[in-house]
Design a protein around this nucleic acid. Sequence first.
DNA 1: TCTGGGGTCCTAGGACCC
DNA 2: TCTGGGGTCCTAGGACCC
Length: 413
Amino acid sequence: MGANIIHADLDAFYASVEQLLNPSLRGRPIAVGGGVVLAASYEAKAFGVHGGMPGRQARQLCPDLQFVSGHFDEYQRLGDAAIDVLVDFTPAVERISIDEAFADVSGSVHLFGAPEDMAKTIRRRVRTELGLPISLGVARTKHLAKIASQVAKPDGLVVVDPPYEETFLRDLPVALIWGVGAVTQERLADAGIATIGQLAAARPQSMERLLGRTAGGKLAALARNRDPRPVVTQRRVRSVGAQSALGKKPAVTSVIRPTLRHLADRVASRMRAKSRAGKTVTVRVRFADLRAVTRSITLPAPVSATGILAEVAEELVHTALADHPTESNISLLAIAVSQLDDDTALQLELPLRLQDEKRCPGTRKGAARWLADRAMDAIRDRFGKEAIGYGSVALGDRRAIPDAFRELAEREL
DNA sequence: TCTGGGGTCCTAGGACCC
DNA sequence: TCTGGGGTCCTAGGACCC
């Protein structure tokens, strides 16, 4: 089997788009965002600025850093356009995020030649047609292709031919392995393991002792490059959620209820739009000191009605707060729904069945609310999201992330 | 002015059933 | 009454990714 998997990754994507749109930003350290850095240009990264970093800290590291507010619609458009370039070479494209995808070109070699040549063409086209830098890795497996594209950054191409896989991996840091974050890296370092070669040479038993059975075994397989995962064109989403950072607010109903309303509306309307519903509702409460707890419940029937979701979430938040009576301030609330089902007709049939009404009191009321929500959805479709409903309740916070960014981060259901 | 938002997967203990 | 084992689901927490 040859090196037929391509991993494509747009470089410093949001920042590159800003530099594309505004030439005066090119070659300069810039950050998209404000209160928090959503993306940093390579010029800013050289100062240690990175995504997720508080804006104040970024300014300290890089006094000349220029903040720009994002053009989120452009990110979506250009990200889609880059993926389209890949799709010109094969339909077997697995999109990982707005700016990243795998492509399996094994079926396209007879049309376009060697994968390396396809990769060169892809890079050239993205550069000339879209004006964006992109890095590509070409290898025998997804995992290896992803490592290769990381090594290729910025704006490069790395091909790993099968005979050279071990040589290629040997001296790379373990952090390049997908799934090895700060904690695992630290644990491995304590065991004297810093490179992928050292990891591959380690005894599997000691890895399992260090990291647990599954993680240890998996990591050993990855390090030895024995991990052929297929490129999956479309993957079903398994949970839908929304969260809102609050700064520091008192944990009182006048704060909690409207926030949960808003979050429930976001989550539930997304589910309804795709005719899905979910049985397990999870809330997350983060206290002022940034410690967080979760509470969840699995309901007897799937829900996608805003009102019911909001009420269940409020109950869960109250149980979480009751378990931490000394915490009087909260900094974040989140709602997620999992155990998703297709809800086709389900929500309408449920109340008609007496057993269900008995087993699940309130189901009839639930269906009525679901219908009311569908009516609101229809109005929003026609007149826009702000036309009706819970809108941007309680999110007057200056640091609130724009809705356009939230939509960008949402995964297709 | 003490940190965004949307996700996936794994683990471990307990409940419950056979 | 006590002892034994396996499977599945639920819940809470945590690591990790983009």
